[in-house]
Measured scan of single mutants.
Amino acid sequence: NQASVVANQLIPINTALALVMMRSEVVTPVGIPAEDIPRLVSMQVNRAVPLGTTLMPDMVKGYA
């Protein structure tokens, strides 16, 4: 199964993503693939992302 990017902490709106904020986990539904974690670093989220939430492409500015 494909691992997705999951929030490792609460990520406030407009926060630039850092490695420590993300982990990979096999979840349903599938979100952003875990292999894209390096690409996500320094991109901003466009909403608050609670701990344990799967990151979806529409949550990250400039990802989709």
Rank of each mutant, 00 (worst) to 15 (best):
N1T: 14
N1D: 15
Q2I: 12
Q2Y: 12
S4G: 04
V5Q: 01
V5A: 09
V5H: 02
V6W: 02
V6G: 00
V6S: 00
V6M: 04
A7Q: 01
A7M: 05
A7L: 03
N8V: 08
Q9N: 07
Q9E: 11
L10K: 10
L10F: 15
L10V: 11
L10M: 10
L10R: 11
L10N: 13
I11E: 00
I11Y: 00
I11P: 01
P12Y: 06
P12I: 05
I13W: 13
I13S: 14
I13P: 13
I13V: 13
I13G: 08
N14S: 08
N14F: 14
N14L: 07
A16R: 11
A16N: 13
A16F: 14
A16G: 07
A16Q: 11
A16C: 15
A16K: 09
L17D: 02
A18E: 09
A18F: 06
A18K: 12
L19A: 10
L19M: 14
L19F: 14
V20Q: 12
V20T: 15
V20R: 14
M21H: 09
M21Y: 09
M21T: 03
M22D: 00
M22E: 00
M22W: 02
R23C: 06
R23Y: 05
R23Q: 04
S24G: 12
S24P: 15
S24F: 07
S24L: 07
S24M: 10
E25Q: 10
E25N: 08
V26Y: 13
V27A: 06
V27Q: 04
V27H: 03
V27W: 03
V27D: 02
V27S: 04
T28L: 09
T28K: 07
T28E: 15
T28W: 06
P29G: 03
P29R: 04
P29H: 04
V30W: 11
V30M: 14
V30Q: 10
V30T: 11
G31H: 02
I32Y: 01
I32A: 01
P33R: 08
P33K: 07
A34P: 06
A34I: 07
A34S: 14
E35T: 10
E35G: 11
D36I: 07
D36C: 09
D36R: 07
D36A: 09
I37L: 12
I37W: 03
P38Y: 14
P38K: 14
P38G: 13
P38N: 11
P38R: 08
P38S: 12
R39W: 11
R39Q: 07
R39T: 11
R39A: 08
L40P: 01
L40C: 03
L40G: 00
L40Q: 01
L40T: 02
L40M: 06
V41E: 05
V41I: 08
V41D: 02
V41K: 05
V41Q: 05
S42N: 11
S42A: 10
S42K: 12
M43A: 07
Q44E: 10
Q44S: 13
Q44G: 04
Q44L: 14
V45F: 01
V45L: 12
V45N: 01
N46P: 02
N46H: 09
N46R: 12
R47A: 08
A48C: 07
A48F: 11
A48K: 11
V49L: 06
V49F: 03
V49Y: 03
V49G: 02
V49R: 03
P50I: 06
P50E: 14
P50D: 07
P50Q: 11
L51A: 15
L51E: 15
L51T: 12
L51G: 11
G52P: 01
G52C: 04
G52N: 12
G52I: 03
G52E: 04
T54E: 01
T54W: 02
T54N: 02
L55R: 00
L55F: 09
L55H: 01
M56I: 06
M56N: 05
M56G: 04
P57W: 11
P57Q: 09
P57A: 13
P57F: 08
D58A: 13
D58V: 08
D58I: 08
D58T: 09
D58F: 14
M59G: 03
M59C: 05
M59E: 02
V60R: 01
V60Y: 01
V60S: 00
V60K: 02
K61Y: 11
K61M: 12
K61C: 13
K61G: 08
G62V: 04
G62Q: 08
G62P: 04
Y63F: 07
Y63C: 04
Y63L: 05
Y63N: 04
A64R: 10
A64D: 08
A64W: 06
A64K: 12
